[in-house]
Amino acid sequence: MTVTTGDVWLPFPAGEIDGLPDSFRYRQWDGEDAFPADPADCVFYVTPYMKSQAVTVRPLPRMPALQVVQTLTAGIDHVLAGLADLRPGVRLCNARGVHEASTAELALTLILASLRGIPRMVRGQDREEWHGGFYEALADRSVLIVGYGSIGAAVEDRLAPFECARITRVARSARTAPHGPVHALADLPALLPDADVVILCTPLTEDTRGLAGSDFLGRMKDGALLVNVARGPVVDTAALLAELESGRLHAALDVTDPEPLPVGHPLWHAPNVLITPHVGGSSSAFEPRAKRLVARQLARFAAGQPVDNTVLITG
């Protein structure tokens, strides 16, 4: 059915998005206390970006006419709690195509900075200390990508020029991708001991919550680097802390559990860890790509065409 009436809630001003259909009423809402209009009139909800789960799902129980929920994140875990309040048939869409480049860039940054000792050098610069010597290179290392979706593939694209010895791919189920074979999650125990760098790109689901726990981490080789650009709860923080404090593993984390990491948390000062504050997708690439996605989705919605990136349908 073609939908050309009703409200569309956007976190951006509609005037900043080229190509929006003319027939909808556009309401700007980015998580403020007051709603911009009656939620009952909303047919297409673009969720606020980088807001809490409580904020994101707050209007959903009051949206009986809603047909599409469009997140601006690759993950959808922060929306799932509100889906029970929706009628059957509502489509939940993610932001595939928006964050791949930016998140992959940060993953590569974390890997190179950790291997080459950049945090130590920066701290040394602050103290006017010269930390020469030999450091690890990415060249000739074996890399394991856990969560081989669009972001995992983008990470591999950026690893290609760095002369890695081997890149191994893991997803929920085995398949063949353009770059080569993809192993199933069940193969992880056999794959982990051979990896110098393990990159987590997987979505947060009940199957991946706590995936990098004591058994996973214990199978990693001595001196290996764990990189998490997925979600904090994919890693068991207590198990990771034990490995870091023993000096056996290194870690580079864009996401943590808890998040934001509170003042005084032992992860802040654990040895061999580099932490960035969940900025994988928050770069200059985000906003123009997000706006193009929203315009494209609304054009398809207005024309009665299936929207892209549908990850589930309620009911």
Rank of each mutant, 00 (worst) to 15 (best):
R120Q: 15
I118Y: 01
R127I: 02
E136Y: 05
I111N: 05
A113R: 10
L112W: 03
D140P: 00
D140H: 14
E136M: 10
R127M: 11
G133C: 04
G117F: 01
L112I: 12
G117P: 03
R141V: 01
E136W: 04
G133N: 02
R127K: 13
E128N: 11
M121R: 10
R123E: 15
L138K: 09
F134Q: 11
A139V: 07
T109A: 12
Q125W: 06
G117V: 03
L138S: 06
I111A: 08
G124M: 10
R141S: 11
A113T: 01
R120I: 09
G124C: 08
E136T: 10
R123Q: 14
V122W: 04
E136I: 01
A139D: 11
M121T: 05
A113M: 13
A139N: 11
I111C: 04
D140K: 13
H131F: 15
H131L: 15
R141M: 04
L108E: 07
L138Y: 06
Q125D: 08
R141K: 15
D126E: 14
R127T: 06
A137H: 12
A113C: 09
G133S: 01
G132V: 00
D126G: 09
S114D: 03
W130D: 00
G117H: 01
E129V: 13
E129K: 03
H131P: 08
D126F: 11
G124P: 04
R120C: 05
R141A: 10
D140E: 12
Y135L: 11
A137R: 15
G132E: 00
R116F: 03
M121K: 09
I118D: 00
R123D: 14
V122T: 06
G132H: 04
L108Q: 08
P119D: 07
S114F: 02
H131A: 12
Y135W: 12
A139H: 12
H131E: 05
F134M: 13
M121D: 06
G133D: 04
I111E: 07
R120E: 15
R120M: 14
D126C: 08
L110Q: 06
M121V: 05
G133T: 02
L115Q: 11
L138F: 08
R123L: 13
E128L: 15
A137Y: 10
R127F: 05
L138M: 07
G133E: 02
D140Y: 06
R120V: 13
T109Y: 03
D140Q: 15
E136P: 00
F134A: 13
A137S: 14
M121L: 14
D126K: 12
D126T: 09
A139G: 12
H131G: 06
Y135P: 01
W130Y: 11
L115V: 05
L112P: 02
S114R: 05
I118L: 14
T109Q: 08
D126N: 10
R141T: 08
G117K: 02
R123W: 09
E136R: 15
R123K: 14
R123F: 10
G132R: 05
W130K: 00
W130A: 02
R123Y: 09
E129N: 02
L110N: 07
S114Q: 10
E128F: 12
A137N: 13
I118G: 00
A113K: 05
D126V: 09
D140M: 10
R123T: 07
P119H: 07
V122R: 10
V122P: 00
